[in-house]
């Protein structure tokens, strides 16, 4: 928590990483990867979020309870995405008229 001074070098490195990842997102958006579109987009977004949380938000120096809280938040996001995708993946498994 307090007492840790993060060097400017790390901040610039993180900034650089975020910029590169953004470029990847933009680049990938121009390709058609089929089913993989969403997977890649989410993977890149996940990397960005991890970098921000770990370095900018200083979670790497946080106490266990704080880390647990962060993990809880992420877990909830994962719950949301998984159950959401059970719908989107299986919508056209059944024969018959398609919804959307």
């Amino acid at each position: 928590m307090s007492g840790h001074v993060t060097s400017k070098k790390i901040y610039f490195a993180v900034f650089g990483a975020l910029m590169i990842l953004t470029a990847i997102t933009v680049g990938v958006a121009t390709l058609d990867l089929g089913q993989l579109n969403t997977v890649v987009a989410l993977a890149v977004a996940g990397c960005k979020a991890t970098v921000v949380i770990w370095y900018f938000m200083e979670v790497r120096h946080a106490r266990p309870l704080t880390k647990l809280t962060v993990v809880g938040g992420i877990l909830w996001l994962v719950i949301m995405l998984i159950l959401l995708f059970t719908d989107y993946i299986s919508r056209d498994w059944m024969a018959g008229p398609q919804a959307w």
Binding site: W76, I79, M80, L83, T86, D87, Y88, I89, S90, R91, W93, M94, A99, W100
Partner: peptide, 22 residues
């Protein structure tokens, strides 16, 4: 309580399989 929200959507066009899970 966070795992059941799809029970409001059984007739919404949500996939039947998701409906079963919910």
């Amino acid at each position: 309580g966070f795992l059941v929200w799809g029970h409001h959507m059984f007739v919404s066009g949500q996939s039947v399989y998701a409906g079963m899970v919910f």
